[in-house]
């Protein structure tokens, strides 16, 4: 397929994944505060940290605003100067989709375009003010519909493979970043039993990853730090675990890569190495070495893989290869 189109498929999917992730995180934060009856303080700042936006935010709105839910939500939802706000991500997804309209299915386009129109409608604003929970719910549902529509209406060809790849790499990175920040906000707990507030926080982390039901089905222990981190990193059957995302991404990379060719070598090698490393380690080993460092390493390796994919497929060198001359 056309290299530029492949790149836009990849990014459209990444942006949509980002929309869903962001909406879910904010939603969990909102309801977590209600559940645990905690002060707002210290629960919004990590969100800006995960997004990598704390510095920009503080520079524009001042230090105290970073602890205020309304200010942070406004910034993470509507601010068009925030490169990772819902507004920006959704616009980028829609812009990409518009440029590859002939590639995505009509149903996807109509779904995404309607989403975008809804988001810019007064109705969305009103729901946001009146019932934030419903607002984020609506966004997550729409993302779910779009994912299903993609799966069920797109030709499962290369374009689809690049979309899946974008989704999975984005998701793997997001889970790592979130785990990193939350884990460090809470600190590794050694003493048992944990306080009720701590337990609630671990539950919130699972919820931020849509993982609480899956966790209880699979694990018979209560959600404590290391178990939760281990689940989110290594559970092979959980669709948002880092291991699952990367294994699936590897599947799509193999589909994309033409056999008997050097194309794709860079990204393939990097991915193989990362998977090998992950399979050889465990949550205990990672905690020993320091979880922050380990998570950070995964995030940067995933970023390297993204760059290698771009080099391998999105900006091909123009000299003619023998088979097409």
């Amino acid at each position: 397929m056309i290299a530029r189109v492949a790149e836009q498929c990849f990014w459209m999917a990444r942006y949509l994944e980002r929309v869903e992730n962001t909406a879910r995180q904010i939603q969990v934060n909102v309801s977590f505060l209600l559940d645990a009856d905690l002060p707002e303080l210290t629960h919004w700042r990590p969100m800006l940290l995960v997004a990598g936006e704390l510095d920009h935010f503080v520079a524009r709105f001042g230090e105290p605003a970073a602890d205020r839910g309304d200010r942070v939500q406004d910034y993470m939802v509507w601010d068009d100067q925030n490169p990772v706000s819902l507004q920006t991500s959704l616009r980028s997804a829609r812009d990409n989709a518009r440029t590859i309209r002939e590639t995505i299915s009509l149903e996807m386009w109509v779904g995404l375009n309607s989403f975008w129109l809804w988001f810019h409608d007064r109705e969305a604003q009103q729901i946001f003010r009146r019932d934030p929970h419903a607002f984020y719910e609506e966004i997550r549902e729409t993302c779910g519909h779009l994912a299903g529509t993609t799966q069920d209406t797109m030709l499962h060809d290369e374009a689809f493979d690049f979309m899946r790849l974008g989704t999975l790499l984005e998701r793997a990175g997001q889970v790592c970043r979130m785990l990193d920040i939350k884990y460090h906000a809470l600190g590794p707990t050694s003493q048992l039993p944990e306080s009720p507030a701590e337990a609630a926080q671990w539950l919130a982390i699972l919820r931020s990853c849509s993982a609480s039901e899956a966790f209880f089905k699979r694990m018979s222990v209560s959600p404590r730090g290391p178990v939760v981190a281990g689940f989110l990193l290594f559970e092979p059957d959980f669709p948002r675990s880092v291991m699952h995302c990367l294994t699936r991404a590897w599947h799509f990379m193999r589909r994309i890569r033409p056999s008997d060719s050097l194309i794709g070598q860079r990204s393939t090698t990097l991915m193989q190495n990362l998977l090998r490393t992950l399979r050889a380690t465990s949550i205990e080993r990672m905690l020993e070495r320091g979880l922050h460092l380990e998570l950070d390493r995964i995030v940067s390796r995933v970023a390297e893989i993204s760059e290698a994919i771009a080099l391998d497929y999105f900006s091909p060198e123009t000299p003619i290869r023998s088979e097409s001359a």
């Binding site: 056309i2 290299a3 492949a6 194309i263 497929y313 091909p316 123009t318 290869r321 097409s324």
Partner: peptide
């Protein structure tokens, strides 16, 4: 030629 993910076509 068009630049594709599999090289020029």
């Amino acid at each position: 030629f068009v630049k594709t993910t599999r090289g020029p076509m």
